[in-house]
Amino acid sequence: MPQTDCKPVADGSYQSRDLEEEFLIYDSNGDQVHVLNGTARAIFLLCDGTRRPVEIAEVIVKRFEVEPEQALADVNETLDQLVEIGLLRI
């Protein structure tokens, strides 16, 4: 789980394309394209270095009409995965 006061930001060295329903990120080192679907895409796009996980979750609550606890759990899990594969820095 990421630290609660971290403000994750996307690693800008990746080529990416936003297809609206999905977000594609090209990792040329690993020669693979990561596909972020609806919620993961929204969380990723909110990681601009100004928001903490709880603030990202607040936006997700409004946008997807989910319970705050569920939203925060989803945000933390998604951030963990995106940091692990190197798409986000915290």
């Binding site: 080529q15 394309r17 297809l19 609206e20 594609l24 090209y26 040329s28 020669d31 394209v33």
Partner: peptide, 16 residues
């Protein structure tokens, strides 16, 4: 010679 970059550009053109 990176076909994945080509794929990304084609993908980007399909937005909308």
């Amino acid at each position: 010679a990176d076909t994945t970059l080509l794929y990304l550009d084609i993908s980007g053109a399909l937005k909308g």
